[in-house]
Structure formats: structure tokens, C-alpha cells
Amino acid sequence: MIGILISEDEKDEIVYMLKREMDEILFDLKEPRIEQVIKAAMEERYKILFNLFKRVATEYECMNYMVRSKKKSNG
């Protein structure tokens, strides 16, 4: 476990950067020309970024970036 002290301005900048990166991933995941292997890697990266985001963002902001999991139905 690593701790870090940051100012409110630095926290806001981290939130901003994480939001931009997550928005870009969500946009790219909708692109049909991107291969599934690449999309799987992007989804893994999104999970990591979202876990970081949860540590610095408000609950309301987190709700906007929660991704619904895809459940496969069996017939």
C-alpha cells in the first residue's frame, strides 16, 4: 500500500485526466473496426483506471462511469 498527499488542485487534475482517458476508452469500445482482442485489453485498462478514479472522485461522478457488465443468456 502506498500513500500520497496531494492538494485539492492536484486531485482535481487527476480526476480530469482519468475522466478523459475513460471517456476515450468508452468511445473506442463502440468502434466496430477494433478487434475483440484489443477491446478486451481496453476493458482491462478501463477497470484499472476506474479503480483509481473511485479513490479520488465523488460517488456521483463514479456512478456516471460505471459500466454495466455484459451477461450472456443461455437461450
Results as ranks from 00 to 15, higher is better:
Glu13Ser: 10
Ala41Asp: 03
Asn74Trp: 12
Lys11Gly: 01
Asp12Asn: 15
Met17Glu: 09
Ile34Asp: 07
Glu8Arg: 04
Val37Lys: 12
Asp23Val: 02
Tyr16Ala: 09
Met42Ile: 08
Met17Thr: 09
Ala40Arg: 14
Lys72Gly: 10
Met42Gln: 00
Lys19Tyr: 04
Val15Leu: 05
Ile48Thr: 15
Gln36Asn: 12
Phe27Ser: 11
Glu43Gln: 11
Val15His: 03
Gly75Thr: 12
Lys19Pro: 00
Cys62Val: 15
Ile6Asn: 01
Lys71Gly: 08
Pro32Thr: 08
Met66His: 05
Leu26Ser: 11
Glu31Leu: 12
Pro32Val: 09
Asp23His: 01
Ile34Leu: 08
Ile4Cys: 03
Gln36Tyr: 11
Asn64Arg: 08
Ile6Gln: 06
Tyr60Thr: 14
Ala40Tyr: 09
Glu44Met: 07
Ala40Val: 14
Ile48Val: 15
Val37Trp: 05
Ala40Ile: 13
Thr58Asn: 02
Lys30Phe: 10
Pro32His: 05
Val56Thr: 10
Met63Tyr: 09
Lys70Gln: 12
Met1Asn: 02
Lys72Arg: 13
Val67Arg: 00
Leu18Ser: 00
Phe50Val: 13
Val37Asp: 07
Ile25Arg: 01
Asp9Met: 06
Asp9Gln: 07
Ile25Cys: 02
Ile38Ser: 05
Glu43Gly: 09
Val56Leu: 02
Lys11Cys: 00
Asp23Met: 04
Tyr65Gly: 14
Arg68Asn: 12
Glu13Ala: 11
Glu10Ala: 05
Val56Pro: 00
Met17Asn: 06
Asp23Leu: 02
Val56Asp: 01
Glu31Pro: 05
Met63Ile: 14
Lys19Phe: 03
Ile34Thr: 09
Lys70Cys: 07
Ala40Cys: 09
Lys30Gly: 14
Ser7Met: 07
Met63Thr: 15
Lys30Glu: 15
Asn74Cys: 08
Lys30Trp: 08
Ala40Met: 14
Glu31Cys: 12
Ala57Arg: 00
Lys47Gly: 06
Gly3Ala: 05
Gly3Val: 04
Ser69Val: 11
Asp12Glu: 15
Met1Ser: 03
Lys54Tyr: 06
Glu8His: 02
Glu24Cys: 10
Lys70Val: 13
Tyr65Ala: 12
Asp28Phe: 05
Gly75Phe: 14
Asn74Leu: 14
Arg20Cys: 02
Leu29Arg: 00
Leu52Pro: 02
Leu5Asp: 13
Lys47Asn: 12
Phe53Met: 10
Arg68Asp: 08
Ala57Asp: 04
Ile4Phe: 05
Arg45Ala: 10
Pro32Lys: 10
Met22Leu: 00
Leu26His: 01
Gly75Gln: 13
Met17Leu: 15
Ala57Ile: 12
Cys62Pro: 01
Asn64Cys: 12
Arg20Val: 02
Arg20Gln: 09
Asn74His: 12
Leu18Met: 04
Ser7Asn: 06
Ile25Pro: 00
Glu43Tyr: 08
Ile2Ser: 07
Arg33Leu: 14
Ile4Arg: 10
Ser7Ile: 06
Phe27Cys: 11
Ile48His: 02
Gly75Arg: 14
Leu29Gln: 02
Lys71Glu: 13
Asn51Asp: 11
